[in-house]
Amino acid sequence: MVKQKVIDTASRVYLIFALILLYLPILILIISSFNASPRNKAVWGGFSLEGYGKLIHNDMIMQALGTTILLAAGAALVSTVLGTMACIGMLGMKKRSRTWLMGLTNIPMLNADIVTGVALMLLFSRFVDLSFWTMLIAHITLIIPYVVLCVQPKVMHLNTSMYEAALDLGASPVYAFWKVVLPELVPGIVAGFMLSFTMSLDDFSVTYFTKAPGIHTMSTMINAEYRKGIQTELYALSTIVFLLVLLVLFLMNRKAWKKVDGVRGRKGGRQREKA
């Protein structure tokens, strides 16, 4: 049992070590955002909110932020719709054509982002001018496989007899889809949307090659400007982004927690009744 204790302690130490490694850079960003020291951010020069003030008045960063969110939301929405439709369509296919389609899905996944970006740039620059729309198309292409990969397993586990039963009982195909099929798919669709949204937010390579001059997303803006003395603003931005993400995850988690608590509460109640 001594051995078990050693393993437990080692596990705990390792977990804490990993958490420190993971969060230390973020913590440093947050501290730096409040650092008044103008030149060297590694030296504490007193508390200041200057970075936040400058951030709000920096049109370039605000525009990049807007473009990033618009792009991610638009791309995630289109990919979720197209991807989900494709997954349902695959139900009616023979195994062979389904395998083909999944192979096609794997191309952007397995290809390096930089190759996807370069190839799309070659296509766009041949036929159209680069614009917000080319960026949107590129993002959709990049993230659509993640939707398919999230939704496809759920579709494969669908019990199609339920849908057919609903039709037999007089439901219209649209109504039956809405009431019988869609609720089964929702977890997969939500996961696909979230994952593809995240992938779009985080992308650099594909955006870099397909973006129009003058339009920036966060990633390309940081790449172009991080040397030019807007660091404090960027640290302030990181802090805000981090707190927002924290809030969203907390809210999502609280829902899950409530469910857990509900189940536990009911169990406890039953046990008490027994006693």
Partner: peptide, 20 residues
């Protein structure tokens, strides 16, 4: 009528062919 209409995968197929 069955649930899996192959046509639903059409837009996706077109998209992937055209853009990948």
């Amino acid at each position: 009528k069955r649930l899996g209409k192959r046509l639903l995968a059409g837009p996706y197929l077109m998209w992937m062919l055209l853009f990948t």
